[in-house]
């Protein structure tokens, strides 16, 4: 069980990459990229987990309760924000590609130059 979360991480990366290279639609490809990136959340939270630890919020529990690492959780938050920004930009590029070439299929788009 000790390695199970990390196996999940590897699985999410590879399954997302598989989607990326087999996809025939730019929007679907962007979703696949989100899948690849979401593996990092599992990795960060998995690395910071402490057996028996609670979430690092001490509003209504003792100040010295065993808690999981708050630093990686903050990093996961950064990760989510960056993903939202990247997704927004990629989606707008997909909108423009469709406007210009009338297709969202990357195989067809490869035939257009410029």
């Amino acid at each position: 069980m000790a390695v199970f979360p990390f196996l999940v991480v590897a699985w999410i990366v590879v399954v997302g990459l598989y989607g990326l290279i087999t996809s025939r639609d730019l929007i679907h490809q962007i979703v696949c990229l989100i899948v690849v990136q979401s593996s990092t959340y599992v990795l960060l939270l998995g690395v910071g987990y402490v057996t028996g630890g609670v979430a690092p919020y001490f509003y209504d529990i003792g100040r010295h309760a065993l808690a999981v690492d708050p630093v990686v959780q903050a990093l996961a938050l950064t990760d989510v924000v960056v993903e939202a920004a990247v997704t927004a930009l990629l989606l707008s590029l997909a909108v423009q590609a469709h406007k210009k070439f009338g297709t969202l299929d990357p195989h067809d788009l490869a035939e257009f130059k410029g």
Binding site: V47, V50, T51, V71
Partner: peptide
């Protein structure tokens, strides 16, 4: 990596 649930990092516990 340290096994799942055995996070040894010095930074997190220090901040906690």
């Amino acid at each position: 990596l340290p096994g799942f649930g055995n996070y040894p990092g010095p930074y997190g516990p220090e901040i906690l």
